[in-house]
Design a protein around this nucleic acid. Structure first.
Lengths: 335, 335
DNA sequence: TAAAATATGAAGCCACTTTTTCAAGTGGCT
DNA sequence: AGCCACTTGAAAAAGTGGCTTCATATTTTA
C-alpha cells in the first residue's frame, strides 16, 4: 500500500499538496491535481483507513452484537442491517454473543475503544435471565450510541426497535378462532426469553378473554435436553382435542406441523398451525406453514436509521424512542 | 473516551511517562505506575484502537465476505469463524455480497485499505458464473492474505478450504444403493454453482458406474421462478419409480421429503432421501432428514487457522494449500 | 566527586487532514 | 520603471492517540 508521503516524494511535492490534490482542493492547480491523481491511480493509492479514522474521530463502522447468527431471524436482520449500512457508507462488525453474558460484555468492551461509531444489539439470553446489564449502562455513559432490537432491556435507556409481540399473539388467536378452533395450544422453545414470555402471556390472556375463562391455556415448553419431536408428539397425544397451535419461535411450528401429519392429522382440517417465522421456513412443510412474519428486514433498516439519527445529532438530547414494527399474518396453508 | 494526553495533564506528567507506566515499563517508578493505573482505571481509559492500529500497522480484524448470511451453511461457518477469531483476539467484519459480483468487489475494496489484516471469502454466484475475478488478483498482488472456502476459484492462487463434494455424493449414492435403491434422483437449487455442479457431476458418474450405464441420471433443477414444492411434486409424479433422492442443498431435501409424504409415499420405506444439510434442518421433518453434514464448524476453524499461518509468516513464501474437510453421512431416519 | 542507577521528558513517527504561512506572478497605478 | 495590491499555488506546521528512542534530570552509591 502506497502512502501520500511516498507519492509526494515521487512527484517531488509536499505531502499536503498531495492530500489536497487528492481531495480536489481549489487551492491546488489543475495540472498538479491531474499529475497526483494519475500517479495515485497508477500505484492504486488508497487512503489508510486507520489514519483517516484517527483524524476524523469516526470509523464509519457499526458494531452489531446478536445472540446467534445461525438463528434465521437474526441472520435476516443482520442481512438487512448490512445492506442498509453499506448503502450509507458504513461497515458492520458482527459479534456473536452465543447467548452468553460474558461474551456480550467482552465484545462490547473490545469494540468500544474507538473501533465503532455505535452499537446495534440484541441482548443474550443469559443477560436477560440474570438481569446483569451494567455493561450497557457504561456504554450510555460513554455516549456511544446504542440501539437495541428484538431482545431489549427495559432498564436501559436507549433507542429500541421491537415487534408488538402481544399484538401478534392476539392476531394469531383471532385468526384461529375465526376458523372455529376451540382448543388452541401454544408451543415454544424460547420460554425463558422476554419475547417468548410476551408472546406466551398474550396467548394466555387471549384464551381467557375469548373463552370467558372456561378454557385453560395449553402450553408446551420444548426443552433442549430431550428430542423436540417426541416432546411435541407426547403433547399432542396427551391433548387429543387440540385443533389449533401457535408456535413462538421459528422451528417448533414446522416441527409441530410435521409431527401432527405423521400422527395422521390432516392439516389444516384437523389442526390449524401458525408460527412466528418467515417465508423460507414456511416452505419447508406441506402444507406450508402459516406465519407471523417478524419483518426482520424492516427491523434491520429501522435500527440503522435510528443509529444514523443518533450519530448525526450526538449533542442533541432527543429523548430515546421505541419503534414498533408491525407483524404480518400470512396464511400459507396451515391455517 | 479519555486519552493518554488527558491523563498526563491531570497527573501533571508527560505523555510518554503515562504510556510507559500503562505498559509497566521498568523505566518508570513504582509509585508513578500505580498513580497512572489508578487514574486510568478511574476514567476507564482504553487505548484508541485506531491509533494503535496506525502505529502497529495491523488491525486484528478479519474481513469475511459471504454470499448470503441467511443461508444456514454460511451462517454456521461465520459462527465458527467468529468464535475462533475471537479466541485469537481478532474481530471480524462481515460483508454480505448477496451473490453479487459488484458488491463483492466493493466490499473487498472498502476493506483492503488497512481496515483488515486479511480476508476469508466464499465467492458470489455471479463471480463464479461470469468468471470475473480480477479483484482477487489485485488482492494477491497487494499481499493481503486471502483464504477462500466452499465457493472457491481455481484460477486464484490462495489458500482454500473445501469439502470433497465428489466424495460426498458418492458416499450418498453408496448408502442408497446399499439400501437397495434402484432409481436414484438428484434435486438441486444450486445447479449453477460450482459446488452444485460438482455434486451433480459426481452423482451422474456414480449412476453410470453403479448401474453399468443401464440407468440414466434423473435430475431436477429447482428454479426460483416457480413454486419449489410444485416442481418437486411434478418431478415425482413424472418419475414414479424414484425410490431414492439426493438433495444438493440445505432446503430441497426437507421439501422433497415432505412433498413425498403428502403424496402418500412412506419415508424411508418407499423413498430414501439424503440431503446436504445439517442437524438443525434434519429435525424439521418426520422422519428426520438423513444428511451429509458439511461440517461448517470445522470449515470455519480451518479458514481462521490458515489465515493465522499466513499472517504470522507474511514474508515466507510457503506454497498455498487446499484443505479438504471430510463430510459425515448421518442417517437420521430418512435413509 | 564521579560514576552508576533511576526516573522522567522531549521529540519523532505512523498516515492523513486542515490551518496557516509563504512565494511567485499579475495587473494597475503613479 | 517602480511600487503596491491581489491572486494563485504550494509548502510548512500542527494535530489526531499511542508508542519508542534518545536525552536529560535527579538521586544514589562507590
Amino acid at each position: 500500500m502506497i502512502t501520500q508521503k511516498e507519492l509526494a516524494k515521487k512527484l517531488n511535492i509536499s505531502i499536503s499538496t498531495v492530500s489536497k490534490a487528492l481531495n480536489n482542493s481549489p487551492e491546488i492547480g489543475k495540472e498538479t491535481i491531474e499529475r497526483v491523481h494519475a500517479l495515485a491511480k497508477f500505484y492504486k493509492y488508497q487512503p489508510n483507513q486507520n489514519a483517516v479514522n484517527l483524524k476524523k474521530r469516526e470509523t464509519k463502522t457499526i458494531g452489531v452484537i446478536v445472540p446467534n447468527i445461525t438463528n434465521r431471524f437474526f441472520a435476516k436482520v443482520l442481512f438487512s442491517i448490512q445492506e442498509e449500512a453499506s448503502n450509507l457508507g458504513y461497515n458492520i462488525i458482527i459479534c456473536n454473543s452465543n447467548e452468553s453474558l460474558q461474551k456480550e460484555k467482552d465484545s462490547l468492551k473490545v469494540l468500544s475503544n474507538g473501533s465503532v461509531d455505535g452499537f446495534i444489539v440484541a441482548v443474550s439470553e443469559e443477560t436477560q435471565l440474570t438481569k446483569n446489564y451494567s455493561h450497557f449502562e457504561g456504554l450510555v455513559n460513554e455516549e456511544i450510541p446504542l440501539i437495541m432490537f428484538d431482545r431489549v432491556l427495559d432498564k436501559i435507556n436507549c433507542d429500541k426497535v421491537i415487534i408488538d409481540d402481544a399484538d401478534a399473539s392476539k392476531k394469531a388467536m383471532n385468526a384461529l378462532i375465526e376458523k372455529g378452533r376451540e382448543q388452541i395450544a401454544f408451543v415454544s422453545t424460547i420460554f425463558d426469553l422476554n419475547v417468548g414470555k410476551l408472546r406466551e402471556h398474550s396467548y394466555e390472556e387471549a384464551i381467557k378473554f375469548n373463552f370467558n375463562n372456561k378454557k385453560k391455556p395449553l402450553i408446551l415448553h420444548i426443552t433442549p435436553e430431550k428430542d423436540s419431536q417426541s416432546q411435541i408428539r407426547s403433547f399432542l397425544e396427551n391433548n387429543p382435542k387440540i385443533d389449533g397451535v401457535i408456535s413462538a419461535d421459528n422451528i417448533s411450528g414446522t416441527q409441530t406441523l410435521n409431527v401432527a401429519i405423521s400422527m395422521g392429522y390432516k392439516i389444516p382440517e384437523a389442526i390449524s398451525i401458525i408460527g412466528f417465522a418467515d417465508d423460507a421456513i414456511s416452505k419447508l412443510s406441506v402444507p406450508k406453514l402459516s406465519i407471523l412474519d417478524q419483518n426482520a428486514t424492516k427491523m434491520g433498516e429501522a435500527t440503522v436509521h435510528l443509529l444514523m439519527k443518533r450519530l448525526k445529532n450526538k449533542a442533541d438530547e432527543m429523548p430515546k424512542s421505541t419503534q414498533i414494527i408491525p407483524t404480518v399474518l400470512n396464511n400459507a396453508g396451515s391455517l
